[in-house]
Simulated assay, not measured.
Amino acid sequence: MHRRTPVSADLSVSQSVIGRSKGESAKDRAAIQDERAESLLRTDAAAVLQYLARRVDPGDDASDLLSDSMLVVWRKRGAIPANPVEARMWFFGIARRVLLTYRRSASRQNFLVARLKANSATAPVHANKAGNVDDGGEDLRAHVRSLVGTLSDTDREIVTLVHWEGFSLEQAAVMLSMRGSTVRTRYSRARAHLKALLLASEDIAPTAL
């Protein structure tokens, strides 16, 4: 007489197989997330460090902020977009939030005030008889940076994301959680403003923008 396997035994085997499959699937997802995070950090950490270094002084603080940003990336690696461009924007977005927290820190207030005052001062640009910058452009670049520092926080962030970090206006809009049309308008206005300031600086051609 054929003996049937108890129903409870069948259920036990099925649950064991399902549990093992789920466990393997979870491990696969974790491995993919780890690999994605490692790839993102390896590819874009240097660019993020430059992004931070341009916005903090002393420069040593940029390394600390990068470490904080990388830690957040690793903790949230499950949220990293699969698309490399979107992942890069996501990484920069994290760095920007870390930077904003840094700037809000009470222990940094005196430093921030001093830097804002320094940025608001227009550095003189020395030209030779032909009207060209003597050092081949370094003074002009420093002058442009000082002028960019006079923009509003939002306009400055838009201009630097586009010209220094290489993002498009559309990508900058996503990173700043702003409408694309608003970003384009503010960028155009800020760029025209900077060009006018450059033209007023001893008739130097605004080639830096």
Rank of each mutant, 00 (worst) to 15 (best):
A95L: 01
V72H: 11
A46R: 14
S39I: 01
A46P: 05
D60T: 14
D60E: 15
A37C: 10
A26I: 09
L66M: 08
A30I: 06
L66K: 10
Q109S: 03
D68W: 07
R42G: 04
A45R: 12
K76G: 06
T101F: 07
I80V: 08
F92M: 08
M70T: 08
V72C: 07
L65W: 13
A95Y: 04
L52Y: 09
V56T: 14
L112R: 06
Q50L: 13
R104A: 00
E24R: 12
V85R: 12
A114C: 05
L112S: 05
R54I: 08
L66T: 08
R54M: 13
Y102A: 04
E38G: 04
E35C: 02
G93W: 06
A46W: 08
G59A: 15
P81A: 01
D64C: 06
D68A: 03
S39Q: 10
P58A: 13
P81W: 00
P58E: 15
D64R: 10
V85G: 08
V56G: 12
E24D: 10
A37G: 03
V98E: 12
M89P: 01
F92T: 05
D44V: 02
L66D: 11
L112M: 05
A114T: 08
L99Q: 06
D61V: 14
D28E: 15
V85Q: 14
N110D: 09
R108C: 06
Q33P: 01
D28W: 05
P81I: 00
L99N: 09
A46G: 05
R108P: 03
I32R: 01
R88I: 03
R54F: 14
V98G: 02
Q50Y: 13
R88V: 00
G93K: 12
F92Y: 10
R42E: 02
L100W: 03
M89Q: 12
I32D: 05
L41R: 14
T101I: 03
S67Y: 09
D64M: 12
A37P: 09
D28S: 03
R54C: 04
D28F: 07
